[in-house]
């Protein structure tokens, strides 16, 4: 047996928590569920190509649906993987009894979730582009580049939301996050005048797919610049992570109920 070891550095701890999460995710059902979800736009792309409706406009439509629906849903699936599954599976005690900062658990899991889902999402959107762009492949490379950046940003943002929901709501984290991202965020994004509060709208603005409506009789949609929307999403990502971290730092998770 070795002597009591030195304190692990925060970077080491984050890496280990992330590695542990990735190892478990690879062997669990989550990756398969995500792959099935990501197969849907590929099928749609192929259908678009076969039916002659493909092209860059079709890809823009796909990208909009990625940012508004698919990425929020895929990242919601990760919410339970933050702390909820550790609480439900009664394994959190193994982590919290180690000499590691409590905040490292949601943060390490966040890094793992974004790495895993981000990689799959980037591969998926690239394939969608290659399938749907057809003869316009080289003409739309700027669009693809923007799409990749937008998808990565969305994965980081919704991953942070998942980290917060997974830390705060340990019983029904997936349901709670789905309600937030699909009902509240999208719902707000449909209301003229206040849609600037919706993260989904800012993500569309970052990739240049936000189309403000100016003919509403009671409120006009605001104009959004990609730069400001990028800063808003980055700031919101940090805020969600801070919420997750501060909650975990001060909360006693009961694993005996």
């Amino acid at each position: 047996m070795p002597n009591p070891p030195a304190m692990p550095s925060t970077a080491t701890v984050l890496r280990q928590i992330a590695a542990l999460s990735l190892r478990r995710a690879r062997r669990g059902r989550l990756v398969r569920v995500i792959l099935v979800a990501l197969a849907l736009p590929l099928v749609a792309s192929a259908f678009g190509l076969i039916s002659g409706r493909g092209g860059l406009d079709f890809f823009e439509m796909l990208l909009t649906n990625y940012l508004r629906y698919l990425i929020p849903v895929v990242m919601s699936l990760q919410a339970t993987a933050t702390l909820a599954e550790e609480v439900q599976g009664r394994t959190l005690g193994y982590l919290f009894s180690r000499p590691i900062p409590r905040f490292s658990v949601p943060l390490g899991k966040y890094l793992a979730n974004v790495t895993l889902s981000g990689t799959l999402l980037l591969a998926s959107i690239t394939l969608c582009y290659l399938i749907s762009a057809g003869s316009e492949i080289f003409a739309g490379l700027d669009l693809l580049l923007g799409a990749l950046g937008g998808v990565l940003l969305a994965a980081c943002y919704f991953g942070a939301v998942a980290a917060a929901f997974g830390s705060l709501v340990t019983n029904h984290a997936l349901t709670a996050m789905l309600i937030y991202v699909l009902a509240i965020d999208i719902g707000v994004g449909l209301i003229p005048g206040v849609k600037v509060v919706s993260a989904g709208i800012h993500l569309l603005a970052v990739v240049g797919l936000y189309r403000p409506h100016t003919n509403s009789f009671f409120a006009k949609d605001p104009q959004l610049s990609p730069g400001i929307s990028l800063a808003v999403i980055a700031g919101m990502t940090v805020l969600w992570l801070i919420l997750a971290i501060s909650w975990v730092k001060s909360t006693e998770y009961r694993t005996d109920r």
Partner: peptide
């Protein structure tokens, strides 16, 4: 309680805990 990482091997689990201990 009986909670444990069922999807890991014993050596993976125990080694991961050792790493988290420094």
């Amino acid at each position: 309680h009986d909670g444990i990482y069922h999807d890991l091997t014993a050596v993976e689990f125990v080694a991961a805990m050792a790493t988290l201990s420094g």
